[in-house]
Amino acid sequence: MPAARGVLGRVRRARARAVEDLDAAIERDPAASGGRVEMALTSPGLQAIWAHRVAHGMWQRGGRWRLPARLAAQTARAVTGVEIHPGATIGRRFFIDHGMGVVIGETAEVGDDVMLYHGVTLGGRSLQKVKRHPTVGDGVTIGAGARVLGPVWIGPAAQIGANAVVVRDVPPAAVATGIPATVRFPGKDELDPYADPAVYI
């Protein structure tokens, strides 16, 4: 029964990924006190990423699968308030805290261990059918209401402050805040404790 073993293997991998997501979310959310079951039932960010993984799998198959993928994404949007295009590529242990109002475009690429807060947009600035959405490295945190626009690169371990508007690349381990965003390097620059609190995300 090779086919049955293949299906069983996929189910086991999906379950392992879901548990990994749950544990990552619990680690990052200080309000998560009820364990995995409570988190699975009450976190729209997790529900959105799980729906996206299904939609993305259909999208990659192409052809007649594209419409069901879009419908799955739209259903997830209606239920969770999170809009992720099924073409977007998202890594492991991704977490959206609160979730409402997050938008992730078709050609966005998101690495592992990335955290987004509500109202974040990974959007485009072109109507051409090219790479037009951000690439976000591993371990990035993007604060509430931030807009990261165009095919910019956000380096690993960078932090984007709340309500920042990012239209240029952000180096690894940098902090970007403001409109348009400016870049600081904690540990290299002396941070003013009376500066914009968004610096500290």
Rank of each mutant, 00 (worst) to 15 (best):
T89Q: 13
A76F: 01
A146S: 14
G150F: 04
V82G: 09
P172C: 02
Y194E: 10
A72P: 05
K188Q: 14
A146E: 14
W153F: 12
V166I: 01
A162L: 02
I84Q: 09
R184F: 07
A144M: 13
P86T: 13
W65R: 11
R70S: 06
P172Q: 10
R64A: 15
G124V: 12
V120S: 11
L149S: 10
D192H: 00
S126Y: 03
P86Q: 11
G105V: 06
D196L: 07
V120Y: 04
P68R: 08
K131G: 01
V167Q: 02
Y117C: 02
D192W: 00
T135P: 01
A76I: 07
D138S: 13
D169A: 04
I160C: 09
V136I: 15
T89Y: 03
D169N: 11
P193N: 03
V102T: 12
G91Y: 11
T89R: 15
V82D: 04
D113A: 11
V120G: 10
G87S: 04
A73E: 08
V148S: 09
G137Q: 11
V79W: 07
Q159W: 00
D192Q: 00
W65L: 12
P134Y: 02
R168S: 11
Q159E: 05
K129I: 00
A144Y: 03
G145W: 10
R168P: 00
A73S: 15
V175C: 03
P68L: 11
T75L: 13
G155N: 06
A78Y: 00
A108V: 03
F94A: 08
R92K: 14
T177Y: 01
G111W: 07
G161S: 08
I90E: 08
V114I: 07
P180S: 09
G91F: 12
L67N: 04
L191E: 11
A173Q: 01
L149N: 08
V110S: 05
I179E: 06
L127D: 15
G143Q: 12
I90L: 03
A173R: 10
G145F: 09
I84T: 04
G101E: 12
A174T: 04
A78S: 14
F94W: 09
F185Y: 12
K131Q: 13
H98E: 13
L122E: 13
V175Y: 01
